[in-house]
Design a protein around this nucleic acid. Structure first.
Length: 226
DNA sequence: GCATTAACCACAG
DNA sequence: CTGTGGTTAATGC
């Protein structure tokens, strides 16, 4: 499959399915396809950005270097757009994007993307809906981080990985302990300890990178009670 | 006071 | 990169 031709790409975004043939051709002509290995940076905080990035396959972390520590803002799973807020909202990126696994991405020229938003209402509408959903997610994440204690925060994120990212009670943890800490806003040591506690309580099972949710109800309870 | 929570440090696999 | 133990500070009965 040719991933650099928008017209024939089978991994088109929901929004892009509303694009007309000639619009897809224009997009293809102003789009660069690239592949990123685990750990490679897709775009960087504080750098000038002139592209919207569409992720076809893979998993990405968005992170921001804060005044006190590095925060993982959220994970993003393909298919999705990256960098619409940071490219449209400012000249300079407010956060970085780094691949957590092998990732295929398309860099769409911002001028072309703007043009599509203006000429194709259905495309724009789909993009807005997506942006709104993202904002709601971020609000939820914000409250989760600010108001819950660490067990609650950790449980919520384990459920997020299980439900939203992998759709399975069993998955390979794509993050290091330190990255889990950056995601849940705590220390690496605390993550280690808490995962051990959850494991001893038979709520989850950990085998190296493999995580298995054993007592889903309990995990939900912990996540809710905080 | 005393208990709990969680960060920080150091050190060892 | 991880796990553990000791220490310490903040907060809440």
């Amino acid at each position: 499959m040719d991933l650099s031709n928008c017209s024939t790409c089978l991994l088109k975004s929901k929004a892009a399915r509303y694009l007309l043939d000639e619009e897809l051709i224009t997009q293809t002509q102003n789009c660069v396809h690239g592949e990123f290995k685990k750990g490679e940076t897709i775009f960087k905080q504080n750098a000038l950005s002139s592209n919207i990035i569409y992720i076809q396959t893979g998993l990405v972390k968005l992170m921001i270097d804060g005044p006190h520590a590095t925060q993982i803002l959220r994970l993003k799973k393909a298919p999705c757009y990256l960098g619409i807020p940071t490219t449209m909202g400012d000249k300079i990126n407010h956060y970085s994007a780094i691949a957590l696994e092998s990732t295929q991405a398309c860099f769409i020229d911002i001028g072309v993307f703007r043009g599509l938003l203006k000429t194709n209402p259905e495309f724009s509408y789909q993009i807005i809906v997506k942006l709104c959903k993202n904002e709601l997610d971020q609000f939820d994440r914000c409250v989760n981080l600010v108001q819950k204690q660490i067990f609650g925060r950790l449980a919520t994120h384990l459920l997020y990985l299980s439900n939203e990212i992998f759709n399975s009670k069993e998955f390979i943890m794509p993050l290091t302990r330190n990255e889990i800490a950056q995601l849940t806003s705590t220390s690496r040591e605390t993550v280690s300890r808490l995962l051990n506690v959850l494991s001893k309580e038979k709520i989850i099972k950990i085998n190296g990178k493999k995580v298995q949710v054993l007592n889903y109800q309990m995990l939900v309870k912990i996540s809710e009670k905080g």
